[in-house]
Design a binder for these strands. Structure first.
Length: 482
RNA sequence: GGCGCGUUCGUCUAGGGGUCUAGGACGCCGGCCUCUCACGCCGGUAACACGGGUUCGAUUCCCGUACGCGCUACCA
């Protein structure tokens, strides 16, 4: 029983007003890992009280993103919008106990006061007009049905807490506004809902972005006013773009979905994100999930913001890609097959694709790159790389070499690597040139390019028919252009 | 502007009074391998923001300055 009570419960609480942001994904990941590490539970709460900007599609997208990353949650996600009456009830308690009060100041009036303060270079804070309203006047206004908000009454002199990541955070009570708990339209505000919901969900550790640091003292005040035990707070440093500004559209991809579409593996994103702001304390970087979980510790999180380095993400994806089996990569390639002109995937065609993957996997970092890198395995070259042509096709006797090459290759049976290599090296020797003198021109003929996997391997995969056809085609091209 | 927080190679970071000639990784540069390109391997480049303290001794502790970021909403 007590064991159950002491169990760690963490949550990820996105607001469905956009796609799952890379920063949100990391927050979710850290919560998930922490729950796993501690044998606790990872819960979800959808903060959809901003009715105008929230949508069910966004909720679905966010859940999909979490699933893709492998971050499974327990219990049903809590929808904040369905808890409004509970939030209001909680505030009623505060009003009754005198910790919250109705404020009748109009938004226009407050806006005006704020402008004045800004003009005079003073910092604005709610002046407490309605805090000091006489009970009679307040009752009268209420009776008249004057529109009002409910504000929290800040009494404390100083609030401080020890953050799990940052140093001790202290703020003077005079710096905290009598913040609004319930809007004019009856909707509760963030600082209130987050406290009520976290309490009701039994959240023990709040792990969230550092942009919430300054909200924390307000929330602590609410916990105190409600007489609730506050959770442990740990704030994650922000993820910045290369210009040190908060990661945004200007930096390119910011949503998890975009990285998925670009061909990054979930394990890469997970691993890379885990390393943004956290380190296992030793030199390990490429780590499995279970390694991540066992090495994870809140104390390993650094407090300074981190710049998102896409180059390193790409490098890491290359590591994971090379570790994958050809079979798995072929699976990943299915959505792209039609770009190679493969309509329905027969067994033999898949065998061919697998061979192509074998040759290319050390040369790409993301799955979709196979498409471009491997086009010549599926279509005869229609153009020849001009730079390579200039370098290797300008030699004399090339057409004669190609003719001899075709002749020799046609005789090879079986058409395997050893046989091909022997033939080509023999041919070169016979002509008193290096093998490279034949290999490079042949590569252009076969692939259209100046670079490719080893040419003997390429020939084997292409097969004798394609090889011979392409060499003849090049021969034709050469004789016409000379 | 006010308040809060932060500051180790270009980037992610290790280290937290002497063992630091500050370690690793990405990137970049060079080399090896080699038919090219990759992969792999080897090597190199590059940092404790600045100024004061405390101390026998500060990258490590304290204060200040600079810079950065966050918050400053009837958004979350």
């Amino acid at each position: 029983m007590t064991e159950e009570i002491n169990k760690v419960r963490v949550r990820f609480a996105p607001s469905p007003t956009g796609h799952l942001h890379i920063g949100g994904a990391r927050t979710a990941l850290f919560n998930w890992i922490y729950a796993r590490k501690m044998g606790g539970k990872f819960l979800l709460r959808i903060e959809d009280t901003d009715l105008a900007r929230s949508s069910p599609e966004m909720v679905a997208g966010i859940l999909g993103g979490l699933r893709w990353l492998g971050l499974d949650w327990e219990e049903e996600p809590l929808f904040q919008s369905r808890r409004i009456s509970l939030h209001q009830k909680a505030v009623d308690r505060l009003v009754k106990s005198g910790r919250a009060y109705h404020c009748f100041c109009s938004p226009e009036l407050l806006e005006q006061k704020r402008r004045v303060a800004v003009r005079e270079k003073k910092d604005y804070r709610y002046d407490g007009t309605c805090r000091h309203l006489s009970p009679e006047l307040r009752a009268k206004y209420l009776q008249e049905g004057r529109p009002s908000v409910i504000r929290f009454q800040v009494l404390e002199g100083e609030v401080s807490y020890k953050d799990g990541v940052f140093n001790k955070i202290t703020v003077d009570g005079t710096e905290i506004d009598d913040f609004i708990l319930i809007r004019r339209n009856g909707q509760p505000t963030y600082n209130l809902t987050v406290v009520v919901d976290d309490h009701d969900m039994g959240i023990t550790h709040v792990i969230r972005g550092a942009d919430h640091i300054t909200n924390t003292p307000k929330q602590l005040l609410l916990y105190r006013a409600f007489g609730w035990e506050p959770p442990f707070f740990a704030h994650l440093p922000l993820i910045l773009g290369p210009d040190r500004k908060r990661l945004s559209k200007r930096h390119g991809a910011t949503s998890l979905e975009e990285y998925r579409q670009q061909g990054y593996f979930p394990e890469t994103v997970r691993n890379y994100l885990a390393l943004l702001g956290w380190s296992p304390g030793d030199d390990r970087e490429v780590m499995t999930l279970s390694e991540l979980i066992s090495a994870f510790d809140l104390s390993g999180i650094s407090p300074s913001n981190a710049i998102f380095d896409e180059q390193k993400l790409e490098w890491m994806n290359g590591i994971y890609l090379r570790r994958k089996s050809e079979e798995d990569l072929v699976q990943d390639l299915y959505p792209y097959l039609k770009e190679w002109g493969i309509q329905e995937s027969s067994k033999s065609e898949m065998e061919y694709v697998k061979k192509v993957v074998e040759l290319l996997k050390n040369r790409v970092k993301k799955t979709p790159e196979f498409v471009e890198a491997g086009t010549y395995f599926f279509k005869d070259p229609t153009t020849y790389d001009p730079k390579a042509v200039r370098k290797f096709w300008g030699v004399p006797h090339l057409t004669r070499w190609f003719s001899l090459l075709v002749e020799a290759l046609e005789k090879i049976d079986p058409f395997d690597e050893g046989g091909i290599e022997t033939v080509i090296r023999g041919l070169a020797e016979g002509m008193g040139v290096k093998a490279a003198a034949i290999i490079h021109p042949a590569r252009i003929a076969l692939t259209g390019r100046g670079a490719s996997p080893g040419i003997f391997e390429v020939m084997v995969v292409l097969g004798k028919d394609r090889v011979v056809r392409r060499l003849r085609k090049a021969l034709d091209y050469l004789s016409r252009s000379n």
